[in-house]
Amino acid sequence: MARVVSTQSQSVSTQVLLATICFAMGLAIMLAVGFSAPIEAHNAAHDTRHAAAFPCH
C-alpha cells in the first residue's frame, strides 16, 4: 500500500516538474520572439509581433 502511494506521489511530482519545464519553455520562447528589445530581434519578428498584438515600437 505504502508503495502504491509513493509511486503515485512520484508520478504527480514528475508531472508537476514536466509541466513547470513546459511553462518555462513557453514563456521564455514567447519573451524572446515577442518582447526582446534588440532592434534586430524586433525587425526580424516585426510582422509576427504586430499580428500577435504584442506591444510593438
Binding site: 514536466l18 509541466a19 513547470t20 513546459c22 511553462f23 519553455m25 513557453g26 514563456l27 521564455a28 520562447i29 514567447m30 524572446a32 520572439v33 515577442g34 526580424a44 519578428a45 516585426h46 510582422d47 509576427t48 509581433r49 500577435a52
Partner: peptide
Amino acid sequence: TWVSNVVLATAWSFLLCG
C-alpha cells in the same frame, strides 16, 4: 516572419503541453 511565427507557435505549444 515564417521563422518567428513557427517560434511563437512553439511557445504556445509548450504551454498547451504543460
